[in-house]
Simulated assay, not measured.
Amino acid sequence: MKKGIHPEYRPVVFRDPGADSAFLTRSTITSEKTIEWTDGNTYPVVDVDVSSASHPFYTGRSRVLDTAGRVERFKQRYGRT
């Protein structure tokens, strides 16, 4: 690898304030904010809008669309008689 062209790869905390959850992983993203993690070390923290703790698909709160009703309404409105 060439020296000096790659970003620093380091531990970063991603936090979802809406779900009150956070996880520590490695990333090249930068942040001015820091947080003290459970191991006593201080890491940069990045706030995210949606994570697996708050996404409807992963939490089981997703809606099921009534596609059959929509198709029937379309056929009724625009179908040949």
Rank of each mutant, 00 (worst) to 15 (best):
G4K: 12
S54F: 02
A19E: 03
Q76F: 07
S21F: 13
F74L: 10
T81Y: 07
T28H: 06
S54T: 12
A53K: 08
V45M: 03
R15E: 11
I5F: 14
R63A: 06
G60P: 00
T34V: 08
P11M: 08
L65W: 09
I35T: 12
M1F: 14
V71R: 15
T59K: 07
L65I: 14
Y58G: 01
Y78R: 13
T34H: 07
I29S: 07
E8D: 09
E8S: 08
G40E: 02
V45F: 02
V48M: 10
V46G: 02
K33R: 13
K2S: 13
V50T: 11
K2N: 15
A22N: 08
R63L: 06
S54Q: 02
R80S: 12
V12S: 01
R80P: 07
S31R: 00
G4Y: 12
A53W: 10
N41L: 13
H6R: 15
G18T: 06
V71D: 14
A68T: 12
R77Q: 15
A53M: 07
D20F: 05
Y78T: 06
V12F: 01
S52D: 12
S21W: 10
E36Y: 07
R70V: 09
D39F: 12
Y43A: 01
T81R: 11
V50Q: 05
M1Q: 13
F23C: 12
K2H: 10
E36L: 14
F74E: 15
T81H: 09
T42M: 01
A19Q: 04
D16T: 14
V13I: 15
F74T: 14
R77T: 12
S54L: 02
P17H: 00
R10L: 07
V48E: 10
S27W: 03
V71P: 05
R80F: 11
T67M: 09
Y9D: 05
T67Q: 07
Y43S: 02
F57W: 10
H55W: 00
S51Q: 02
K3G: 12
N41K: 15
S51W: 02
Y9I: 06
N41P: 03
I5W: 10
V12G: 01
I5N: 12
K33C: 03
D20R: 11
A53Y: 11
V50E: 06
R73P: 00
G4M: 14
V48N: 05
Y78A: 09
R63D: 06
D16P: 06
R70P: 01
T42Q: 04
T38N: 10
H55E: 00
V46F: 06
V46R: 08
G4R: 11
S31F: 00
A53E: 10
D66R: 05
D20C: 08
P44A: 04
H6M: 15
T25D: 12
